[in-house]
Lab assay of single mutants.
Amino acid sequence: MATGGRRGAAAAPLLVAVAALLLGAAGHLYPGEVCPGMDIRNNLTRLHELENCSVIEGHLQILLMFKTRPEDFRDLSFPKLIMITDYLLLFRVYGLESLKDLFPNLTVIRGSRLFFNYALVIFEMVHLKELGLYNLMNITRGSVRIEKNNELCYLATIDWSRILDSVEDNYIVLNKDDNEECGDICPGTAKGKTNCPATVINGQFVERCWTHSHCQKVCPTICKSHGCTAEGLCCHSECLGNCSQPDDPTKCVACRNFYLDGRCVETCPPPYYHFQDWRCVNFSFCQDLHHKCKNSRRQGCHQYVIHNNKCIPECPSGYTMNSSNLLCTPCLGPCPKVCHLLEGEKTIDSVTSAQELRGCTVINGSLIINIRGGNNLAAELEANLGLIEEISGYLKIRRSYALVSLSFFRKLRLIRGETLEIGNYSFYALDNQNLRQLWDWSKHNLTITQGKLFFHYNPKLCLSEIHKMEEVSGTKGRQERNDIALKTNGDQASCENELLKFSYIRTSFDKI
């Protein structure tokens, strides 16, 4: 039985969820670079991206490699990797027998973001014989899940209580170790020597080791999670996991709180800001991140802002960003909400898709409305799209047979046209069989910064309504002859009103 693990408890099935942008060198404390989270699957090609990484700022997932063999891993080693800020997950990587050479110096898994409450997941690794993470000293947050690894031993010899604050939620089941077939031998045991430290858990006094050649490092209890030197002297209180010299914040392997210019500090002093819960960055760093993602459509890219001495992905609820200094300031009234469309555009074809934009005031991208039916549609669209004030790209209304009016965009005031449909149009209306009105132009103002209007096959939309939009939106004169079809717009509506004058002759039985 794995020490510190839980057996036999019912657990939810383990679901495996399925960018080499360097964020800056980590400095003297770390020998390499800070790398983003990685999802490495199918083959070993991307694994080489770990070569210079000291910190993975995010998670590391290595999974679904069915053609790899043990010899493929023999020359692979990433000794610079010290810390993973989120979680480490391995799933069905064939041929991998140990992690001792792959990650010989991995010391800390912070667990800032977890995989279903777990910071370390080893699942269905069919050839893994031992973990071998002999320098792993601290899992700051989260638990361990090690399950269905039929060859995995050296679990009962690990004292997880020396690595985690609590072992109650560890789930370590259905491994070879369960069948008591392992016969784990710690260093020196074969020669009758006791080389590794022994600890007591559940009444068992057991030597602690990761492999037959690597003991588990056990520091004096007084050192807590700070770690200790090879001689057993406690590291500085700002260290986490390990250090090369005692009581020196510049000799830590990793930091308990924050890293700044080669030393570990309790908090980031001005003019620095907390970033990702582990390091200090200056304003320029946060500003660069903001600008890199301002026009990016890459998933996970955030326009970072500053709030409460932190550089964070977005302002919290009730705050909006001051564009001059990136500071989050309290909103006066309802907060603006910028919604970034991942692929640059979004099609609204149902109430469900409209709900995804609920509360958005600025759309960074283009909207395509293609709704053919739905219950209580006008009210639903207004509830979900009615706060949109600005669209950076274009607005396209296409084959939306259920629409009679666009009044559900009740606050839309600006279409920038930074991206144009077919390279020309910022407003595009095609084949809307029941569209009769755009907006009530006596109450609604709309500016279209650039781009043209396109109207074709809107049989109940009168040309007068379209011409009014040209005047109000500032697009009059931009359109070419064929942009607004004269014969297919309003051709099934009563669009022309003329005053009919009647004269009559009164007659009676005795007068003409």
Rank of each mutant, 00 (worst) to 15 (best):
A119K: 00
D159R: 07
S54D: 03
E181T: 06
N175A: 13
T267L: 03
T85C: 05
F91H: 04
I306W: 11
T189E: 04
H59K: 13
L289M: 07
R279K: 07
A198P: 10
L88A: 06
F205W: 14
G262R: 11
I163S: 01
L47V: 01
V34A: 12
G241L: 02
T45V: 05
Q61V: 12
C53P: 00
G227P: 08
L136G: 02
P79N: 06
D39P: 00
E238T: 03
P269S: 04
Y30V: 03
L128A: 02
N195I: 13
N257R: 08
E238G: 11
E130H: 10
T140V: 07
C223R: 01
N42H: 14
S112D: 15
L47M: 03
M83T: 05
G192Q: 11
F258R: 04
F78M: 09
P249H: 06
L152Q: 03
A230E: 14
E181L: 15
G142V: 02
C243V: 00
D277A: 05
H302I: 09
R141P: 01
G95W: 04
C335P: 12
D39K: 13
A119S: 14
C235N: 01
V265W: 08
L131N: 02
L102M: 14
D177V: 02
N282S: 14
L99E: 00
I201R: 09
N135P: 04
G37F: 06
S323H: 15
L60V: 04
H291T: 01
M38K: 11
Y134L: 09
G241H: 03
K80C: 10
F205T: 07
P249I: 05
D75W: 04
N52W: 11
C239F: 00
P187C: 13
N295F: 08
N149G: 04
N242Y: 06
L44V: 13
D72W: 15
S161C: 14
C335F: 05
D159H: 03
F78Y: 12
F285T: 12
D288G: 05
E71S: 04
C311F: 06
N150K: 05
P249Y: 03
N179S: 08
N175I: 12
L29V: 11
C219S: 03
M137K: 10
S77Y: 12
Q299F: 04
V108K: 02
R208K: 09
V265R: 14
C186E: 04
D288E: 05
C335A: 05
C215D: 10
N282T: 14
L90R: 00
T68K: 13
A230L: 05
P336V: 06
K224E: 12
A190Y: 15
S98D: 01
D75G: 03
R113P: 04
I82K: 03
N308V: 11
C255P: 00
E124K: 06
E238V: 03
E207Y: 04
C209V: 02
L289Y: 11
L44K: 05
L152G: 00
R263M: 11
R69K: 04
C255I: 00
R69M: 08
H291V: 05
K80S: 10
T211M: 02
G37K: 03
T189P: 06
C228N: 05
N179Y: 03
R141C: 02
A190K: 07
F73G: 10
C293K: 04
V305H: 09
P70C: 07
K100S: 10
S143L: 09
D159Q: 09
I158S: 03
G95F: 05
Y134W: 13
L114W: 02
E49Y: 11
A119N: 01
I222S: 04
T85L: 11
C293A: 07
C328T: 04
F91Y: 14
L90I: 06
L131S: 02
Y171G: 08
T211Y: 02
R46C: 14
L136N: 00
E124F: 08
E57L: 04
T107D: 02
P271E: 09
N308W: 12
I306C: 14
Y154T: 05
P270L: 10
N52V: 11
A156G: 10
N195W: 10
N43T: 05
V144I: 15
E151T: 01
G183C: 10
M125C: 07
N149K: 00
P270S: 08
D261R: 09
G183Y: 10
N257V: 01
R256F: 11
I109M: 02
C243G: 00
A190I: 06
N42S: 11
W278S: 08
K80R: 09
G227K: 12
E147S: 04
V121A: 09
P31F: 04
A156M: 13
V218H: 11
A198C: 12
D261V: 03
S98P: 01
